[in-house]
Computed example of a mutant assay.
Amino acid sequence: MAPRIRPLTPAELTPGQFALYAAITAGPRAAGPQHFALTAEDGSLRGPFDALLRSPAVGGAQQELGSAIRYRSGLTDRTRELAILLVAAHQHSAFERDAHEAIARALGFTEAELLAIRALDVSGFDECDRIIGRAVIELLDGDVSDATWAAASGSCGIDRFFDLTALVGYYMTLALQLRVFRVE
């Protein structure tokens, strides 16, 4: 499917859009190792970030939530990437899968683990990852069972479980936006 919007270059941005662009390109996503390019050769933002520019007030709040989830939550890097990849698999979000598989590989995920995640199969993971993975899969259907709640909140704590629910909701929103705007 063809993209529904053309990415905006920095020269085309309104002052509000440029402020959001600067927050994204100068923030934590741009710092440290880059496992996928944040911008294209013409300076336009890749992935979901260009769509955020269409509404700087909402897009700014959304990118700040994403930044908090990725860089300031209590989730471990491995837990975060496992959860993101399960959302990407469930939502058939190629961009999120490709971008976050690169990060997961850098964290030590194996190709077998990545294939299992694509199939929404966490049965072969260690106990902690299996508990979190099961919780994410249930959250993708809208709720968690009492048994999963007890295991996951006991394993990672209620505060981190809150972070996990926020992550699932945020990445489901991104997957929806990527799909609707036909972002490649």
Results as ranks from 00 to 15, higher is better:
Met1Ala: 15
Ala2Trp: 14
Arg4Ile: 12
Ile5Thr: 13
Leu8Lys: 15
Leu8His: 11
Leu8Tyr: 08
Leu8Asn: 06
Pro10Phe: 04
Pro10Glu: 01
Pro10Gln: 04
Glu12Met: 06
Leu13Phe: 04
Pro15Ser: 07
Gly16Asn: 10
Gly16Gln: 14
Phe18Thr: 13
Ala22Val: 10
Ala30Val: 06
Leu38Ser: 05
Thr39Ser: 03
Thr39Asp: 00
Ala40Trp: 00
Asp42Cys: 08
Asp42Asn: 09
Ser44Val: 09
Arg46Tyr: 05
Gly47Pro: 10
Gly47Ala: 09
Pro48His: 11
Phe49Thr: 03
Ala51Val: 15
Ala51Thr: 11
Leu52Phe: 15
Arg54Thr: 08
Ala57Gly: 10
Val58Glu: 09
Gly59Ile: 07
Gly59Asp: 00
Gly59Ser: 00
Gly60Trp: 02
Gly60Thr: 08
Gly60Gln: 02
Gln62Cys: 12
Ala68His: 07
Ile69Gln: 00
Arg70Val: 03
Tyr71Ile: 02
Arg72Glu: 15
Arg72Phe: 05
Ser73Gly: 07
Gly74Val: 09
Leu75Tyr: 12
Leu75Asp: 03
Thr79Ile: 13
Glu81Ile: 05
Ile84Thr: 11
Leu85Gly: 03
Val87Tyr: 05
Val87Glu: 09
Ala94Pro: 02
Ala94Gln: 14
Ala94Trp: 09
Glu96Ile: 13
Arg97Pro: 00
Arg97Ala: 14
His100Met: 13
Glu101Asp: 11
Ala102Asp: 06
Ala102Thr: 07
Ala102Lys: 10
Ala106His: 11
Leu107Met: 03
Leu107Ser: 06
Gly108Ser: 03
Glu111Cys: 01
Leu115Phe: 01
Ala116Val: 10
Arg118Leu: 10
Phe125Ile: 00
Asp126Tyr: 08
Glu127Ala: 14
Glu127Trp: 01
Cys128Phe: 02
Cys128Pro: 09
Arg130Leu: 10
Ile131Tyr: 05
Gly133Tyr: 05
Arg134Ser: 12
Arg134Leu: 13
Glu138Arg: 00
Glu138Ala: 12
Leu140Gly: 15
Gly142Lys: 01
Asp146Thr: 10
Ala147Leu: 09
Ala147Pro: 00
Ala147Ser: 12
Ala150Ile: 10
Ala151Leu: 10
Ala152Pro: 01
Gly154Gln: 02
Gly154Ile: 05
Asp159Lys: 10
Arg160Leu: 07
Phe161His: 01
Leu164Val: 04
Val168Asp: 06
Tyr171Cys: 03
Tyr171Leu: 06
Ala175Gln: 06
Gln177Met: 15
Leu178Ser: 00
Arg179Glu: 11
Arg179Gly: 11
Val180Gly: 07
Val180Ile: 15
Val180His: 04
Phe181Thr: 09
Val183Ser: 06
Val183Pro: 00
Val183Gln: 12
Val183Met: 09
Glu184Ala: 15
